[in-house]
Design a protein around this nucleic acid. Sequence first.
DNA 1: GTCCAGGGAATCA
DNA 2: TGATTCCATGGA
Length: 329
Amino acid sequence: MSKIMQCTIDKNIEKFKDISLKQTFECGQCFRWNIQPDESYIGVVEEYVIKAVETEKKIIFTGIKNDEDRNVDKISDKVKSINKAECSEFPEYSSNNENFENFIINYFDLKNDYGKFQSELIRKNPTDKYLKESIEYGKGIRLLNQNLWEMIISFIISANNNIPRIKGIIEKLSKKYGNEIILEGKKYYTFPKLEDLKDVTIEEYRELGAGFRDKRLYKTVNQIISKEVDINKIYNYENTQKIQEELLKLSGVGPKVADCILLFSNLKRLDVFPVDVWVRRVMNDLYIHNNDENKVNKKEILDLANKKFGEIQGLAQQYLFYWRREKES
DNA sequence: GTCCAGGGAATCA
DNA sequence: TGATTCCATGGA
């Protein structure tokens, strides 16, 4: 029988005080978390469906795991009862399952002190009021430790695409090839494993709406299956550039996608600076001031980021990206 | 109808 | 090497 798992983050703890679900889930790093009518978030992560509820004082995660048991109605009812009004019945900063707690700690990167990261960025750029503003704006962001394989496929889909559509394609992919989990009577689907996609054809990717990315997905799946690129071995590489080179062998993985994989997966390399249209725009607006943002040299952006933000430039990128994008809308 | 989206690969200069 | 062009799709 499926078990309900819970874990609570206490926002009274200094390190956790700024954490924001909205900022973390809507800063563009993940595609499978969706806001609910009650302002909670529900997401599929690995084999879990997780409901996250945030209040002023804490964040409560409730997870249910797929164990091939379809008779989960009673459990679903229990989950349903966890809402803002009732969450006070749960003890502060605790969990009923050690594995789930460790899973959450790892996934939300809770061992890293983002306050320290932020101070470090400001210390390095004491007169940069825009950076300071962007950090203040996105201080609740945590860089998730997401599944490497899922990030590879997801960011191949992201190429020249918009976030709602990326999410739609990933959802269809999961529905067709992933496993079903039921929460509150609603069906969710885990992200397909490598083996689940081994026989998928180019045409079938096209049917999901992947467009011209169909061939890239097909090729990459086969490159990983054949171990032309061994994604398990990647974890053994010490330096970031070496991993970059390995990822770049995959079809549909260029410099920007490789950097996103490095930054948002559990490889968790902060010393990368993914440059997309938004980052080029914000870096040009703030620091470079070229008349045509499309003609800003990428190396110039990377050199500047390296100089200003150093080893944690990936986090700075995320603050600037989120700040600039949200301001637009 | 046109433009754009968390770009990459192929092609050209 | 560096710049241009093409690539599906759906929403604004």
